[in-house]
Design a protein around this nucleic acid. Structure first.
Length: 177
DNA sequence: TGTCCGATTGGT
DNA sequence: CCAATCGGACAG
């Protein structure tokens, strides 16, 4: 589960959709070809920290860095099933009467709902206001996989089935089967 | 400096 | 299908 405590309150959700980005050899990754810059610097740091970036001039996306220093791999968090702070999420999203499955569906939506932005880039997800917390295990049979979304530029890696999501969950973005 | 385009979203 | 919106990447 992902939890974020801020002065406005707590917002949290169960992670139900992710994508793996596998470093220099993965054409879809920001670290493709060993590319390194101020933007993706956190990917090169220790595992367990948040890599937050800004895209399309208006959205943020959050990743969990997954490998040790020098190995730029990460997992993009694409959707959460809201668990706590639903009204706070609705306020942040500007969707007063939205059903819960709409609040954190999609990487940009999830960041807006939890109040995640540039300030959270590099945050230690093991402790602190933005953190990962263990929840009930998801049985392997409930996890489905598919190609990743929005990476048509990735050439040979477009079809790699590195998107994982929980079956039957409405909060999952994109194709759910 | 200039141009191109994006790990998206929400509405037509 | 398309616009919104701006910072990063890269060519010159």
């Amino acid at each position: 589960m992902l939890v974020h405590d801020t002065p406005d309150g707590r917002a949290a959700g169960r992670i139900v959709e992710v994508e793996a980005y596998r470093g220099p050899a993965d054409r879809a990754a920001h670290s493709s070809g060993g590319h390194r810059s101020a933007r993706n610097e956190v990917m090169y740091g220790p595992a367990g920290h948040a890599y937050v970036y800004f895209v399309y001039g208006m959205h943020h996306c959050v990743n969990v860095v997954t490998q040790g220093p020098g190995v730029p791999e990460a997992v993009l968090l694409r959707a959460l099933e809201p668990l706590d702070g639903l009204d706070l999420m609705r306020r942040r999203r500007g969707l007063p009467g939205a059903p819960e499955w709409r609040l954190c569906r999609g990487p940009g939506a999830l960041c807006q709902a939890l109040g995640i932005a540039r300030g959270e880039n590099g945050a230690d997800l093991r402790r602190g206001p933005l953190r990962l917390v263990a929840g009930p295990p998801v049985p392997a049979r409930d996890v489905a996989r598919s190609p990743r979304i929005g990476i048509d530029y990735a050439g040979p890696d477009v079809a790699r089935p590195w998107r994982f999501y929980v079956r039957g969950v409405r909060a999952v973005s994109g194709r759910r089967r």
